[in-house]
């Protein structure tokens, strides 16, 4: 298993939008994104649960991205809006736990937004780089 410092940002991607955008990347842009993030395919970001997002951070991933369809273009109508609410709850919990809420971020990407995806990942990397490194696991789940 990779050491914490080597772990990538986890990107939960809707298979109808963000994942297609990621698959459309090629050349250096694709390499840059794939070097920085671990893509996780979801049928819809509405499936992203608070506990899952927290668990990624517990396991030492520096940050979590939730990348869903634009809110008015969700195949399941309300999946993206539900995900946005859960991301907000997760960010509040992180703040209460004394961590930066910037470790979890949601963005909306359509399948033709490959160029935006690279920018979103870079911006996330920049936000994380500005933070203190997350402490390593001590007890319980890791």
């Amino acid at each position: 298993m990779a050491k914490q410092s080597e772990k990538k940002i986890v990107a939960f991607c809707c298979e109808n939008s963000a994942l297609k955008a990621a698959e459309a990347l090629d050349g250096p842009a694709a390499l840059e994104v794939l070097a920085a993030v671990e893509l996780v395919r979801l049928p819809c970001t509405g499936k992203a649960e608070t506990g899952l997002l927290l668990e990624c951070l517990e396991k030492g991933h520096p940050g979590v991205l939730v990348l869903g369809c634009p809110a008015d273009n969700c195949k399941f109508l309300v999946g993206s809006s539900r995900a946005r609410k859960r991301v907000e709850v997760t960010r509040r919990l992180l703040k209460e736990a004394g961590l930066s809420e910037e470790r979890v971020h949601m963005d909306f990407v359509s399948s033709v937004d490959a160029h935006r995806l690279g920018r979103i990942v870079r911006e996330m990397q920049e936000r994380l780089a500005a933070l203190e490194p997350a402490p390593t696991p001590i007890g319980g789940k890791s």
């Binding site: 506990g51 927290l54 517990e58 992180l94 997350a134 390593t136 696991p137 001590i138 319980g140 789940k141």
Partner: peptide, 25 residues
């Protein structure tokens, strides 16, 4: 079950942030 998992995760992250040696299951 979900809420227990979320609370335990949040407590672990908070404990880790404070450098506490807590085992939370």
């Amino acid at each position: 079950e979900k809420e227990a998992g979320i609370l335990a995760s949040t407590l672990r992250l908070a404990g880790r942030q404070k450098g506490l040696k807590m085992r939370i299951v």
